[in-house]
Design a protein around this nucleic acid. Structure first.
Lengths: 363, 363
DNA sequence: CTGAAAGCGCTTACAG
DNA sequence: CTGAAAGCGCTTACAG
């Protein structure tokens, strides 16, 4: 437990026999102070276990030294659900169904936070994280705005209008989305990724038409990915169909069944993993061997894609890098508030797994 | 981009024709202000888009309004690895091996952060998160200390001595570990969980001795879990062995092979999931059917436990609740700095999966 | 219920 | 290189 009242610059100054200005200098720009006095001050800091007060520093320095990260909301009720000090009251849960998972069906969030966290502290800042709970998005934004020097917002956690408004009072970067001309952004090369993946598929796939499982029409990601698909098709023409799968397992499943009626496809390319997994299940039931008779691929790299039968080749967004670049974009913006908004595009990775590899290793 | 200099209480006061004290009151304790003036002030706040400066508030109010969460470090290099604005430079990665994952092999971190985040904002605080990168643990702690009103530290991210020292200058709660008599803590009922699980196993298991895969001797978790195992054994005697598996896949694998030489076990109870999964693999190769001939269980609830063949029955720590309770403990401590250190124990859940269920549903 | 004033603990020109 | 002093934008007794 904290004992005594914390020491201040005044205490340190007195202890070292200097003025508070000198104490401050030793801490902020040591090169401006003689070695001998610097050492005396540092010793006093040690002796008193002095820790600078961040609020005072922030107020005087006109910067908080903190960056904010706004991530999608969640459903966690903070009314605690686990009994406390209740040894023996263990609950047995049937976990055969996909019971948990929450809003994050993959490790993206974790990686993003890690990337942002590392970059933030490297730069000498702190990272404040907030999840826009649907109720109080507006309040959280207001609150954050007053606490940070810059704010990274994950796409779709906030309505565009709120983002624009927030960007008016604090440096802001949009992550995994864009608002061209309005704010800085860092997003991923959806189009290039899908194009590269499709080219690869067209090269290795067995005979048969290619089925593209299109995503939701209102999603920018879906639009970009489909453009990538068509880019590749233009370069490697061949028979193909598109079916609306709406990013869902069900959608992919039905689209595959429909396709199977007119003969088995040689490849199924999903706009995301969920729809590809739905198609995979349909093919399996229909007795179509993957990848020998049909190659299947997804996009996103959700956990399930690693554990399906066979594991799904997919495209992964570099989430840690998104976090890192978001922070860097914020720092640039803070350094040069007047610069033109910039949109950064990060390259993606293709994860090759057995659903596309005819000579895949077996483990 | 942020345009003009932000408005202050003075601007709002002038705009509303009141003093700054009244503005402050409207924001902090509205009930102390007449409805009519309150509305006038609120209108001014709206008009000017006033956002309180957190640093000034923190300095004047002697609280930062921020809680800190220190999580385990990571290896993410912030020297960015993904090419930027490089459409087409997609990398193809062989993902047949367990190539990624990092320090968090499960979703614990994510859930913990979510729980802590929700509870923190619910209480009107912000959440500052930091990962102790090995280099600068000491600095990060110092830095955090000055920025927050309370600090939650995940067990094993910091040497005990550093924790004790930090606890001296800021309210601190240890999460998933204990330092009895020194700091508040929130941890999990390892002993009760293992005891409940073991009792269940002893009840449903087929004939044959029970093999317990013990964890690392220097781990408090291992000690507690083994005590739980023995508690259950005392109540349901029967043949059993213990083997050191050191929390590792390899350790569990070898222990199972060794056991198989003297005959197949009727149950294998791992002190953690990794070792249980190692044993599971050994049993599978040896042709022992799980769960028909041998029941297998783990502890932790890592991702892999859901996707093994068969899926592994295990004990899950309620990470979100750990986060929530950690925050609550911090808030109590802040409210009553003089109280005795408290150690909270949360109950765990047993996740029943096919590795222990003889009549398990098939999907 | 409202206002004047002190003070929170720093940083940073400005002199010397 | 060092110090005196102003000021950062709030909150909070204290009067009235």
């Amino acid at each position: 437990m904290p004992r005594r009242k914390s020491p201040t610059v005044y205490d340190v100054a007195e202890h070292a026999g200097v003025s508070i200005a000198t104490v401050s200098r030793v801490l902020r720009s040591p090169e401006k102070v003689t070695v001998s006095t610097r050492e005396r001050v540092l010793a006093a800091v040690q002796d008193l276990r002095y820790v600078p007060n961040a609020s005072a520093r922030g107020l005087a320095g006109r910067r908080t030294g903190v960056l904010g990260l706004l991530i999608p909301g969640h459903d966690i009720s903070t009314a605690s659900r686990r009994p406390v000090d209740a040894s023996g009251t263990i609950e047995f849960l049937d976990d055969h169904h996909d019971s948990h998972g929450g809003p994050f069906r993959n490790r993206y969030f974790e990686q993003l936070v890690h990337g942002a966290e590392a970059a933030t502290w490297d730069a000498g800042y702190g990272l404040l994280i907030a999840a826009g709970s649907s109720v109080s998005r507006d309040m959280v934004v207001r609150d954050l705005t007053g606490r940070v020097d810059g704010l990274a917002v994950i796409a779709r956690t906030l309505p565009d209008e709120l983002i624009t408004r927030a960007a008016d009072s604090v440096p802001l970067v949009l992550v995994a989305g864009r608002l061209p001309g309005t704010t800085d952004s860092v997003s991923v090369d959806n189009r290039g990724g899908m194009s590269a993946l499709t080219e690869y598929v067209l090269r290795v796939k067995p005979p048969g038409p290619t089925l593209y499982l299109a995503g939701s029409v209102d999603s920018p990601d879906a639009v970009e990915r489909e453009l990538g698909f068509r880019d590749a098709l233009a370069a490697h023409p061949g028979p193909w169909h598109t079916a609306a799968a709406d990013f869902s397992w069900q959608g992919g499943h039905e689209a595959a069944l429909e396709q199977l009626r007119s003969g088995p496809p040689g490849a199924v390319i999903g706009a995301n993993d969920q729809s590809a997994l739905g198609a995979l299940a349909a093919l399996r039931v229909a007795g179509v061997r993957v990848p020998e008779e049909c190659v299947v691929t997804g996009f996103d790299g959700i956990d399930e894609s690693r554990y399906s039968h066979p594991p799904l080749t997919t495209v992964r967004q570099p989430m840690a890098d998104l976090g890192i670049h978001a922070v860097e974009a914020l720092l640039s913006r803070i350094a040069d508030p007047g610069a033109e908004p910039r949109d950064l595009r990060l390259a993606v990775d293709v994860l090759l797994r057995q659903s596309s590899e005819l000579s895949a290793p077996t483990d």
